[in-house]
Simulated assay, not measured.
Amino acid sequence: MKHRPLKARNFRSAGEDAAKTKPPSLYDGPGSAYHLAFTDIDFLLQEELRPVRVQLELMKPEMVQARLGIESTIVLFGSARIKPPEVAQELLAAARKSGDALAIRRAESAVAMSQHYVEARRFAAMVTTGTRHLATPIHVVTGGGPGIMEAGNRGAFESGGKSIGLNIVLPHEQQPNPYITPELCFQFHYFALRKMHFLMRAVALACFPGGFGTLDELFEVLTLIQTGKSRARPILLFGAAFWKRLIDFDLLIETGMIAPDDVHLFKFVETAEEGWAALKGAYGFEGIASAPTEAAGEL
Rank of each mutant, 00 (worst) to 15 (best):
M1K: 04
K2F: 07
P5H: 10
K7E: 06
K7Y: 15
F11C: 10
S13V: 06
G15D: 05
E16Q: 09
A19H: 08
T21M: 13
P23Y: 03
S25N: 08
G29R: 15
Y34A: 15
H35T: 11
L36C: 06
F38L: 09
D40M: 07
L45M: 15
Q55C: 14
K60W: 12
K60A: 12
M63P: 00
V64C: 02
L68N: 08
L68P: 05
K83S: 10
A93V: 08
A95G: 07
L102E: 14
R105A: 15
R106T: 11
A107M: 01
V111H: 01
V111A: 02
V111M: 03
V111C: 04
Q115L: 06
R122P: 04
A125V: 05
T129L: 11
H133W: 10
L134P: 00
H139S: 14
H139W: 08
T142R: 03
G143I: 07
E150S: 12
E150F: 07
A151Q: 06
E158Q: 12
E158F: 04
G160S: 13
G160L: 10
I164E: 01
G165H: 03
H172A: 15
E173V: 09
E173M: 04
Q174T: 03
P176V: 11
L184F: 11
K195W: 02
L199C: 08
A202V: 03
V203M: 01
V203R: 00
F208Q: 00
G213S: 06
E217Q: 09
T227L: 12
R233W: 05
L237K: 01
A240R: 14
A241V: 07
W243N: 14
R245D: 10
L246G: 05
L246N: 03
T255C: 12
M257E: 07
D261H: 15
D261T: 15
H264V: 11
F266R: 07
K267V: 13
F268E: 04
E270V: 09
E270L: 09
T271Q: 06
E274V: 04
W276S: 11
L279T: 02
K280S: 12
F285Y: 08
E286D: 12
E294I: 11
A296E: 13
E298Y: 03
L299M: 14
